[in-house]
């Protein structure tokens, strides 16, 4: 089978992380996303104060994700060799930034629920 299918992709991801960890991470990402949607619906508005904190966390998510990938793969910024590498680097950074922002916003909404004066 030399064509990519959804099943192949799942199989490869299972092998990268281990079956348990892969599905646990997928479940965690799903739960966080659902929780995010939940607080949005519950509050019926975006809290701009929480969103500010989420935004402030984004650079940390971006840098953290890039450093994590580099540390896991024995590589560094000097190894960027072409345009596609810049795209990969930025994709990792954007994914880390968005992921952490959603996580921060959701945690704020769930944990700091009582401080709702800003809503």
């Amino acid at each position: 089978m030399k064509d990519l299918t959804f099943g192949t992709l799942i199989a490869v991801f299972e092998e990268i992380f281990g079956r348990g960890l892969f599905w646990a991470m997928l479940a965690a990402a799903g739960v966080i996303t659902l929780a995010y949607v939940y607080v949005l619906i519950r509050d019926r508005a975006v809290s701009w104060r929480k969103f500010l904190w989420a935004q402030l966390s984004m650079p940390f998510g971006a840098i953290g994700a890039v450093l994590f990938v580099q540390a896991m793969t024995h590589s560094g910024f000097a190894d960027i060799g072409g345009p596609v590498d810049v795209i990969v680097l930025l994709t990792v950074a954007v994914a880390g930034a968005i992921g952490l922002a959603i996580l921060v916003y959701t945690l704020e909404s769930l944990i700091l629920r009582k401080t709702r004066s800003d809503v």
């Binding site: 089978m1 192949t8 199989a11 490869v12 990268i16 793969t73 590589s75 596609v84 590498d85």
Partner: peptide, 30 residues
């Protein structure tokens, strides 16, 4: 991904994705 260019993405493949794809192949899934 240019074949004769030294790239980070090709290194990432070797380090991260290759063994996973190999294992999936062993299981008959790739």
């Amino acid at each position: 991904i240019a074949p004769l260019e030294e790239l980070w993405i090709s290194w990432l493949m070797k380090e991260v994705a290759l063994k996973a794809t190999y294992n999936a192949m062993l299981r008959g899934k790739a």
